[in-house]
C-alpha cells in the first residue's frame, strides 16, 4: 500500500475544517472511546475537567482533548489524528503555572511518522518555543468558558462559522 502524502502540523492548522463537533465537560478518567490511545482509559485526577472536540481536515479525522485544572492552574489541549483504531498525538498546547509560558509540544515534519497510540512520541516531539527563563510570567486566566476557544484558536476550528 502506498504511503499517505506527507502532512505537517502547520498544514493541518491552516486547512479548512469540517464536521466540527464538541462534547460536554466531563470529570474522571478519559475512556478510550473518547480519546483512543492504547490504554483502555486515561486517569485524570481530582480537580481536572475535560471535553473532546472533533473535526475533519485534509481527509483525516482529528480529536482534541481539552483539559483544565483550575485549582492547579494547568491547561492542556492535545490534538490527535485518527490512525486506524488509535490516534497519533501531534500537538499539546499548554499553559501551567509551574513553569514556562504558553508552549506546545509538537511533531515537526510529517505527522504520519508519529508513533501511534501514545501521548508523546519521545523521538519526534519537541517543545516550542524555547524559553530563556523557566518561570511562568503569564497570569493564568483560562476558565471553563475560555478553554475550548483557546484550543479552537490554536488549531483553527470553529463551530457554525464562528469561534466557540
Amino acid at each position: 500500500m502506498a504511503s499517505p502524502a506527507p502532512i505537517t502540523l502547520s498544514e493541518i492548522i491552516r486547512a479548512p475544517k469540517q464536521s466540527v463537533n464538541c462534547g460536554p465537560w466531563m470529570e474522571g478518567p478519559v475512556p478510550r472511546a473518547q480519546f483512543p490511545l492504547i490504554r483502555s482509559k486515561l486517569s485524570l485526577g481530582r480537580g481536572w475537567k475535560w471535553r473532546i472536540a472533533k473535526f475533519s481536515a485534509l481527509g483525516h479525522e482529528f480529536f482534541t482533548l481539552v483539559a483544565l485544572n483550575a485549582e492547579k492552574e494547568y491547561y492542556r489541549a492535545t490534538l490527535g489524528m485518527k490512525a486506524g483504531s488509535t490516534l497519533k498525538v501531534i500537538c499539546c498546547h499548554e499553559l501551567h503555572s509551574d513553569h514556562w509560558n504558553w508552549h506546545c509540544h509538537l511533531i515537526r515534519g510529517n505527522v504520519h511518522e508519529t508513533f501511534p497510540g501514545v501521548l508523546r512520541d519521545k523521538n519526534s516531539m519537541t517543545a516550542w518555543p524555547a524559553f530563556t527563563q523557566r518561570e511562568c510570567t503569564v497570569p493564568f486566566k483560562v476558565t471553563e468558558e475560555s478553554a475550548l476557544s483557546i484550543a479552537a484558536a490554536r488549531f483553527r476550528f470553529t463551530v457554525g462559522g464562528g469561534f466557540l
Binding site: 486517569s43 485526577g45 481530582r46 485544572n69
Partner: peptide, 15 residues
Amino acid sequence: DSGSLLFDLEGQGVD
C-alpha cells in the same frame, strides 16, 4: 502531583 501523572504514564502505554 498535578493529577495528570497517571494520565501521562498511561498515555505513554504504561499498563
